[in-house]
Design a protein around this nucleic acid. Structure first.
Lengths: 253, 253
DNA sequence: ACCTGAACACCGTTCAAGT
DNA sequence: ACCTGAACACCGTTCAAGT
C-alpha cells in the first residue's frame, strides 16, 4: 500500500480558482504598519500561510502538507513560500502556534483544580478538532507569548493554591503530559490494534485464546473509543492525587 | 538550515565493510524452520531489518532512516528490502515492535499499584533509551502478542485489585496516556522553549518582563530537565488518585 | 529465490533571473 | 519587492531483468 502517491481526489488545475487566497483578516492587516498601499496586496503573509497549512492538514492529512502543494493551494509557486518561512520546519512551528492559539485562557477564577480542568480540557479540545495537525505538531516546544499564556495561568493558579515551586512544576508536567499523551493515544488508537483498514476492531481478535484472559474479558471496553468524559475523568483522578500530595505538605501562605 | 541534506559523516563506500550484516541471532534462526541449508545464508530477514533500522535511528536520528540508507547499511540495495517489508510504514511498525519488545513483564506479583509502576516505568525506560525511535513510533497501535503481554499484565492486576471492568480500562488509559505523553514531552522539551541551537535555555528569556510572574518565578525549575524520579512521582500521584477512586466504589470480589 | 538497474513520480531547497 | 524557472540532491516504490 503506497503511502504518498496519489490520494488527491482530482488533479484540480492549480491555476484555476485557488481555494485559499488573500484572506485579509484582521490580525493580518496589522502586520505591515504602513497605510494600505496602492499596489496589489501581497498574496502571502506568514499568518495566511500558517492558516492555509492548517486548513490543508485538516482537510487532507499531514502527508498532504508539502511546500509545493501548499503553494498551489495559495495560488503561488512553492518557492514563493520561502520568502516568508525559513524552512518546512519553521512552517510546522507556525502551524503549531496557529493550533495552540485556539487555547483560550479563562482569567477570572483562581481555584487550581478548575484551572487544571480548563488547561487540560483545552488541549484535548484542540486535539479533537484537529487530530492530524495535533499528531504532527502537538508536541513542539513553542516559545511564543501566546503559547505561554495558558501555562502561566495554570502555574499561577497552582502557586496560589498552595503548591510549592517544585510541586507546581511537577503538577504542570503531570497534567500536560497526560493531556498530550491521552490525546495522541486517542488519535493513534491507544496501542490496542485497530485494523489496517482503519475501522476499529475488537482488540482480542488476533490474540491466542489462552493467555490473555483480562484483555479478552475487557475487549468490549477496550474497543470502545475514548470520549471527552473519559479524558475528563482521568483529569479528576489526577486532581484527587494532587490534592492528597498537597494535604501531606506544609502549606505556603 | 537544510533538514535532510548531507548529515552523513563521510560518504563511506557502501560496498566496503557494511556495519550491520547477517547478524545471525538466536531468534532469527528459528524463522526458517528448514535445517541450515548449504547455500549462502540470506543477508536479509525481517528481524535483522528491524534491528538495523532501530540501530540506525538510535545512531543518527529518525531522518536518517530511509529505505536507501537502511539498505546501504545492510550491504544491499534499497529495493531488496521490499522483499521482506511491504512498505516503509510496515517497516516502522516493525521498529515499534522491536522497541516494545524491550518492555519486560514481571509475572510474579499481583498488587495493582506495583504493576502500574512497572508498566509505566518500562515505557519511560524505553523512551529514554531510544528517544528518537520513541518519538517516531512510540504511539503506533500494535497488535502483536508481545505488545499485548504487558497490557494484559496490568489489566489483570487491576481487575484482581478490585477495579471494575470500566475502571480498569480507564486506569490503563490514564497510566498509558501519562507515560507516553510525559516521555514524548520530555523528548520534545516540554513545550517550554528550548533554543534553536538545541541547548536548553531558560524559559522566561524571551517573555515580556510583565505579565508572566509565575513562569518567571519558576524559570529555574521549568528549565530543569525532567528525571526518572519526576516521572515516577507523577505515577505515584496518579496511583493515589486511583486508590481514592477505588475506595469510593463498591468492591468486587 | 533473491537481489539489482533503471525508471517514475514525487520531495525540500537554492539561486539566478524575471517583472 | 516579490515571485518564478530551472536545477540539485534527494525520497518511496514498481517492475522487468539478472544470477
Amino acid at each position: 500500500m503506497p503511502v504518498q502517491r496519489s490520494n488527491r481526489p482530482s488533479p484540480r488545475p492549480p491555476s484555476a480558482a485557488p481555494k485559499l487566497q488573500a484572506v485579509p483578516a484582521l490580525d493580518d492587516s496589522t502586520e505591515g504598519q504602513a497605510p494600505r498601499r496602492r499596489g496589489r496586496p501581497p498574496r502571502l503573509s506568514r499568518a495566511a500561510i500558517f492558516r492555509a497549512a492548517l486548513d490543508l492538514i485538516d482537510a487532507e492529512g499531514a502527508a498532504a502538507l508539502t511546500m509545493r502543494r501548499l503553494g498551489a493551494e495559495m495560488g503561488v509557486e512553492a518557492m514563493s513560500l520561502y520568502r516568508h518561512v525559513a524552512s518546512k520546519d519553521a512552517l510546522l512551528d507556525g502551524v503549531a502556534e496557529q493550533l495552540m492559539a485556539e487555547h483560550e485562557v479563562g482569567v477570572e477564577d483562581h481555584d487550581w483544580a478548575v484551572s487544571a480542568q480548563r488547561f487540560t480540557q483545552q488541549i484535548h479540545t484542540i486535539a479533537r478538532a484537529h487530530p492530524a495537525a495535533f499528531d504532527l505538531v502537538g508536541l513542539r516546544a513553542l516559545n511564543t507569548v501566546d503559547a505561554m499564556r495558558p501555562v502561566e495561568a495554570l502555574l499561577a493558579a497552582l502557586r496560589e493554591g498552595g503548591f510549592t515551586p517544585d510541586r507546581a512544576v511537577a503538577a504542570f508536567r503531570l497534567l500536560s503530559g497526560y493531556s498530550r499523551g491521552f490525546a495522541l493515544s486517542e488519535i493513534a488508537g491507544f496501542t490496542l490494534a485497530s485494523a489496517t483498514d482503519g475501522n476499529p476492531r475488537l482488540t482480542g481478535d488476533k490474540l491466542p485464546a489462552e493467555g490473555f484472559p483480562a484483555i479478552h474479558e475487557l475487549t468490549g471496553e477496550l474497543a470502545r473509543e475514548s470520549t471527552e468524559d473519559d479524558f475528563r475523568a482521568g483529569v479528576e483522578t489526577i486532581i484527587a492525587g494532587l490534592r492528597e500530595d498537597l494535604a501531606s505538605t506544609p502549606r505556603i501562605a
